[in-house]
Amino acid sequence: MSRVRSVLREVWPRLAAIAILVAIWQLVYQSGFFDKVVLPSPLQVWRALGHDLGNGVIWRNTESSIVRLLIGFTVSVAAGTVFGLLEVASSFFERSFGSLVVGLQSLPSIAWLPLAVLWFGLSEQAVLFVVIIGSFPAVALATMNSVRQVPPLLQRAGRTMGASGWRLYRHVVLPAAIPGYVGGMQQGWAFAWRSLMAGELIIASANGLGGLLTRSQQNLETPTVIAVMAVIVIIGMFVDLAVFGTLDNRIRSRRGLLVHQG
């Protein structure tokens, strides 16, 4: 009961904000300021969402996007982790390639797409490339920082128990770095999701939510455009909060790192 109430307390401000935005939207729609073709009413969007969910269009495209994302994200987590650990192991590696990756982060991943298209064509690989290059730096940096920020005291304690070298890493440093590492994965996920949508959108791939967005726009199916945008937001938030949020919460509360709100 109290759990339901606490969830409600979390959720209602968001619902209120959404309700207010929808109301404003409805008013703008009714004012006739925009052509009805380019700004449909909330109800039309709702119907389009129901229709496209019903006929499986959204599910199909979501599935292709998620599959791409999982492949790209897995590769970038693996590569980013190895890269981050190399940065920890070698200060030369950090100062050389590590600083390049920091620079890479200031380049929006979508800026790689033209090059990716030249290399791979308007293909799956081009999109995957953009996803990987977009999320890998966040994972690499978080891996390095999470290991660097392990309190030296814990390492000293481990060493006095006779742990050294790889054993010290395996049993003390890496477990201690996990909260920061999970935070980095969460960030990497967010970058991967945005890069994926941007890549699909521009390549207008035959499947995937980004492609659906482009095709709907070209067919002037504005309600579907907005409905798909909502789906993108919902998936992004769901994974961010439900998957990473829960994981992060569990790890932090176990270690006493959560600040409880009275």
């Binding site: 304690a157 006095t160 006779g162 742990a163 050294s164 054993r167 003390v172 477990p175 201690a176």
Partner: peptide, 30 residues
């Protein structure tokens, strides 16, 4: 450093991802 000389630091330096018993067990395992 070596396990023949145990060290108590100013901070307890317990590993936060293990229970109290887990911390003792860990040292024994090492």
């Amino acid at each position: 450093p070596g396990p023949d000389r145990a060290v108590l630091f100013q901070e307890p330096a317990l590993f936060p991802w293990m229970s109290v018993a887990g911390n003792v067990d860990f040292a024994l395992k090492f």
